[in-house]
Simulated assay, not measured.
Amino acid sequence: MAKLQFSMCSWRAGAECEERNWVDLPRDVVSTIFQKLGAIEILRRAQRVCSVWRAISKDPLLWRTIDMRNSGDVDFHLGLMCRRAIDYSSGHLLHINIDYFATDDLLHYITDSTSHLRCLRLAYCYQISDEGLCDVAKKLPQLEELDISISNLNKDPLEAIGRCCPQLKSLKFNMEGYRRPHIECDAEAIAIAETMPGLRHLQLFGNKLTNEGLLAILEGCPHLESLDLRQCFNLNLGGSLGKRCAEQIKELRLPHDPTDDYPFEAEIDYGSPDEDYPSVISDIDFLSDDDYYDYYEFSAGSDFSEYDYDLDYYDF
C-alpha cells in the first residue's frame, strides 16, 4: 500500500486547492477505502492512523470478507491478525482466505466465531490435518465454496464436507502435477461423487484419478457446469468418456490444456525418465491409498495457541 497521506486536495471553483485532513472524511468514504486495502493493510497500517480510523476499522460489516492471501513468507503475526479480524467481524464473517498459515487451531477459531461462512480458501495448507478439517465440517452448514489447493489431505475431509455442507456448489481440490512415480488413486473422486451431488464447479488440478473416478463424478454430480482436469495425467479421454464429458460439461479443461491462468506453481515433475518407480521411493511403491498417506508424518496443526499473546503488544 502506498504511504498514507494525511492531507488531500479538493478543487473549488476557480481551480483553487484546499488542504483537508483525512480524519474529516465521511465515515462511509473511509469504509470504502478500507475495503480496497484488504485485511492485512488495515490491521498493520490504516487503523493506526488515528482513533477515528481505528473505530471505523472495527465495524463488523467491514469484516464480512477477510482476505489474507500472501506470498508464503509467513510469521505468526498473520495468525494473530487473522484472529483479530475474526473478532472484529462479530459473527458476520462470510468469506475468508488464509493461504499458507492456516492451522487446525485457526480453523476451529473461525468456525467457533461464525456459523454463516460461505467461502473458505486454504491454499498451501500443510498445517491442516484430516482430523482438523473433519472436526470443523459440521460447523459449516452454509458453506458454498471450498478451495483446498496444495495440501496433504485425503478423502476423509472431503467426505465430511460432503455430508455436512449440503449447500456446497464449488470445490477446488488441487495438487501439484507430476508424472512419476505413477500412482493411481480414485479415493477423492469417489468421495466427491458420493457426497456432493449439488456441485456446479469442480477443479481437480494434478489429481491422480483414473477414468473410473471421473465416470463416478459425472454420474454422482449431474449438475456440474465446469470441470477442470488439467494435469490429471491418468485420464484417457479419447473415447466415449471424453465425448460424454464434452456433452455434459459446459466448461471443460483437459489434462494437457494451458495453465497460464492457474494461480499456483504448474511446472510438471517428470521424475525419472527411465522408470516409473525410482529407487528412492521403492519402499512405498505398493502401499495402499490409506497407507500412502500415513507413510508421511505431516504436522497436525500448531502446537500452541497463537491467541495466548497480547495482540496489542505486537507492532503489525
Rank of each mutant, 00 (worst) to 15 (best):
K243D: 06
S272A: 15
D186P: 07
H182F: 06
A15I: 07
P166M: 05
V23A: 14
S31C: 07
E16D: 08
C134K: 09
D261R: 13
R230W: 07
E19K: 11
A123Y: 01
Q47C: 13
F76E: 14
L120Q: 02
H95V: 05
D257M: 06
T111V: 08
P26Y: 14
A13C: 07
L140P: 00
P197N: 09
E251V: 14
G213C: 05
D99R: 03
G198F: 06
L146S: 01
D257L: 10
R48P: 00
L199P: 05
T195P: 10
R163P: 00
W11Q: 06
Q35V: 05
D308I: 14
S272K: 02
S302G: 10
R45K: 15
A160T: 00
E176T: 02
L202A: 07
W53I: 07
D285P: 01
L158R: 04
G239C: 03
L78E: 11
D135R: 02
G242I: 04
Y262A: 03
A216S: 06
W22K: 12
A246D: 05
L158G: 02
G213R: 04
D67N: 15
D87C: 07
F173H: 00
R54M: 14
G238V: 08
R200M: 11
A39I: 13
I86T: 01
V30L: 15
T32R: 06
Y178S: 10
S305N: 14
N21L: 14
W63M: 11
Y270D: 12
L153H: 03
L143F: 08
C134W: 00
M1W: 13
F286A: 09
Q231T: 09
A266M: 02
Y293P: 13
L287D: 08
L199Y: 00
S71N: 14
I33Y: 03
P273A: 15
P222T: 11
I161V: 10
A191N: 12
C17L: 05
Y262T: 01
D112F: 06
L204C: 05
S51E: 14
E41R: 12
S305P: 04
A15K: 11
D290L: 07
G220F: 06
G14H: 15
T65M: 12
I284Y: 03
G206H: 15
L204W: 02
V136A: 09
Y270L: 13
E194I: 08
A137I: 04
T111A: 09
L209Y: 02
L171V: 11
D269G: 11
R64I: 04
L117H: 04
L94S: 15
E131T: 02
N236C: 11
M8P: 01
L117Y: 03
M1C: 12
L140A: 02
Y277S: 07
Q142D: 12
P141N: 12
Q203I: 02
D135T: 06
R179W: 10
S272W: 00
Q248F: 05
P273W: 03
E18T: 08
L94M: 11
D283I: 13
S299D: 09
D24V: 03
